[in-house]
Amino acid sequence: MRLLVAAALTLVPAMAVGQETAVDQALEARQGFMTMLGTNMGTLAGMAKGEISYDETQAVRAATNIQALTGYDPTMHFIEGTSTDDLQDRTEALPDIWLDLEGFGEKYAGLQQAAQGIPDAVRGGQENVGPVVEKLGGACKECHDDFRKK
């Protein structure tokens, strides 16, 4: 009996954790993905605005990271049951994503396209960073407008 209780006490939390993990992992993965994109975007945006002094090595590194990150397909982390309807404040992913997965994919393809060739595009001087940031930022906005909670 005591063994049974002990087993139950160990298993129940383990199961609870087990149930949460899929959702938790999905959130961690896609939010981490956004954070990485954002950090590198921040570098480029800062240089474009002159808040960070232009440094070609750093610019190329950020652009290379962004291009590499967008080579990754994060849609697999948008599993069912992880919209703002299901998780409220834990996510900003609107249910519209799941209602229009094709449109969501197209917006992401737009970002992938915008990121093509940017490591070379940011070379040569601060004035080359602005157009890249505008192109990438435009792709961010396109998707945020439709699929991200305001």
Binding site: G38, M41, G42, L44, A45, V133, E134, L136, G137, G138, C140, K141, H144, R148, K150
Partner: peptide, 28 residues
């Protein structure tokens, strides 16, 4: 701050991230 790196309110950096978020919601 709509997190698109091109349309950031000029005073967004003066407030907290939560306020930026709330402001965006209000604006909408």
């Amino acid at each position: 701050d709509p997190d698109d790196y091109i349309n950031i309110g000029p005073l967004a950096s003066e407030v907290s991230a939560a306020t930026r978020k709330l402001a965006l919601r209000w604006h909408h």
